[in-house]
Design a protein around this nucleic acid. Structure first.
Length: 278
DNA sequence: GACCAGGCGATAG
DNA sequence: CTATCGCATGGT
């Protein structure tokens, strides 16, 4: 485990002696798009509510979260069921990966809502992270439910199904608008049923995702990795293409297989912010 | 102002 | 099957 104990402290839940976790590295490395830094804390909206996180002397504070809610939801969301000390020890056998981990040792995989992940990565195509965040924010502000604490939830598929491309104009998503509508209709109609897919093998799940307009191999792999917890999926975008050219001309080490996707997060972050002309 | 962005669908070879 | 091209729009 990457923490010693969980306890309630007033309205908050506290994880003590947290290892292998950095708020900025995990929440702002391009796997999630709805968190932002406010002072020392990070805050964002996920699973229909606001989540505010803060590190304090090695302890992680989850504001206004009960221990039960942590155990039921946020523990998995932040992948605290996985031992990253063990995982990273295995990765360190590879020199490039070792460097990437040393550059950002506090990255964890986030297990996010599949629908939100699907829409987010459909929007991500041929764009950049600042713009992706803006499109998603506009989508939520326009079609989400307003929360008392401020901000808007991610809109449900039923809300977006049946919209016209014109009505999505405030999102400024360009040609991606029709992709979002198709995704919403397929999910809302049950043609693509997320609960059913959760228990499907990765290959079958991937095929189902590829049947949605605007979902190709890269977006599908991101949804599988960040939305369905399929850690073996290794999304290859323009940045990871550079990783492959510069660090793995002969391909990824085969032994990565089951968790290649988590390795991908470290490598993605490293090639974008850390590697200076390797 | 050019070039590029967490790619994909359509079309042609 | 692989190779190009257009795409809406904004960040750098």
């Amino acid at each position: 485990m990457d923490y010693t104990q969980v306890k309630q402290d007033g309205n908050n839940t506290v994880l003590t002696n947290v290892k292998n976790f950095d708020l900025a590295q995990t929440l702002d490395c391009g796997q999630a798009f709805r968190f932002s830094q406010v002072g020392e804390a990070f805050t964002g909206i996920a699973h229909g509510r606001r989540l505010t996180l803060c590190m304090d002397a090695g302890n992680l504070l989850l504001m206004d979260v009960t221990v039960d809610e942590f155990e039921a939801l946020w523990k998995h969301y932040l992948d605290f069921g996985r031992n990253y000390t063990l995982l990273k020890a295995g990765y360190a056998k590879d020199p490039s990966l070792k460097q990437a981990i040393n550059f950002a040792p506090g990255i964890r995989l986030m297990n996010q809502d599949p629908w939100e992940t699907l829409v987010s990565f459909i929007l991500s195509q041929n764009s950049n992270i600042p713009r992706i965040k803006k499109m998603i924010e506009a989508l939520c502000d326009t079609f989400g439910r307003q929360l008392p604490c401020g901000g808007f939830t991610f809109p449900a598929p039923q809300t977006l199904a049946g919209l016209t491309e014109a009505s999505l104009a405030p999102i400024r998503s360009g040609y991606r608008a029709k992709y979002i509508i198709d995704a919403a209709e397929q999910i809302a109609s049950g043609k693509v049923d997320i609960p059913t897919l959760q228990s499907q093998p990765t290959l079958a799940l991937r095929q189902a995702l590829l049947g949605i307009l605007g979902v190709g191999p890269k977006v599908a792999d991101c949804v599988l990795l960040y939305g369905f917890g399929r850690a073996e999926c290794y999304p290859v975008d323009v940045w990871i293409r550079r990783v492959m050219e510069q660090m793995y001309p002969n391909g990824l080490p085969a032994w990565l297989n089951e968790t290649a996707g988590i390795a991908q997060i470290y490598l993605f972050h490293y090639i974008r912010h850390g590697a200076n002309g390797i």
